[in-house]
Design a protein around this nucleic acid. Structure first.
Lengths: 92, 92
DNA sequence: GAACTATATAGCACATGTGCTATATCTGTT
DNA sequence: AACAGATATAGCACATGTGCTATATAGTTC
C-alpha cells in the first residue's frame, strides 16, 4: 500500500501584517463607538468572525475587509492607513 | 438513513470589490513594468495565483495582498486607492 | 507560420476562512 | 457577590484560497 505523504507547500501567513490590521480595525471600531456585536450586524459578518479578526487569529479575505470598511464608514486607504513591516523602504 | 442536507449559510463574495482590486493591481504591476511571472517571484506567490487575482476569480486574503504590496513597492493606502462601490456616502 | 513569451484555465490536494452554536472569560455596575 | 453586557474560545461543517503542475490561448518577433 502506498504511503500517503503531505507535500510541503509554503503558505504565507503574515502574522505581523494581520496583527497590524487587527489593531487598526479595533481602533476604528472604538472610534465609531460600536461593539463587536454591532459591527457584526452592520457588516453582515458573524460575531465570531469579528472577534477572530480583532484577535488576529485569522487571515481575512478582501470581501470580508470590504464589508468591514463599509460598515465602519471608512475608506479603504483609511482602513489600511498603517505601516506594513518589511516595507520600510517605501517612499511614504 | 438520514438525508444529508446543506445548511444555507450566507457567504459574501464581493465580486465588485474584488474586481476593482484586480484592476488596481494590474495597473500598478504594469506601471512597475513587470510581468505576472516576475511579480510571482518577487512576492513569493504562485504564478497561477497572480493570474487568478488579476482576473478576479478569487477573493485573496490579507496576507496575499500584503505580499503583493511589498513586491510592488507600494504602500497599502496606495494599493487600495480606489472606490469601493456601496460606499459612495463616504466623506472622501 | 514557427518559436517564444505572457497570460489565462484547469484540476488536484491541502490549508484555512467563515457561519453557526455554544461556552467561557473579562469588565463593569448595583 | 450577583448580574449583565462585551469579548474571546472552541468545535463543527462547508466553502474556498493557495500551491503545484500541466495545458491552452493570446501576443510578439523572426
Amino acid at each position: 500500500m502506498k504511503t500517503l505523504q503531505k507535500v510541503d507547500r509554503k503558505l504565507i501567513f503574515d502574522s505581523e501584517g494581520v496583527k497590524s490590521f487587527s489593531i487598526r480595525l479595533k481602533k476604528i471600531r472604538l472610534r465609531e463607538g460600536i461593539t463587536q456585536s454591532q459591527l457584526a450586524f452592520e457588516s453582515g459578518l458573524s460575531l465570531s468572525q469579528i472577534a477572530r479578526i480583532e484577535t488576529a487569529r485569522i487571515n481575512p479575505t478582501l470581501s470580508t475587509v470590504f464589508a468591514l470598511a463599509r460598515a465602519l464608514h471608512v475608506t479603504l486607504p483609511d482602513l489600511f492607513n498603517f505601516e506594513l513591516s518589511g516595507s520600510e523602504d517605501l517612499i511614504s
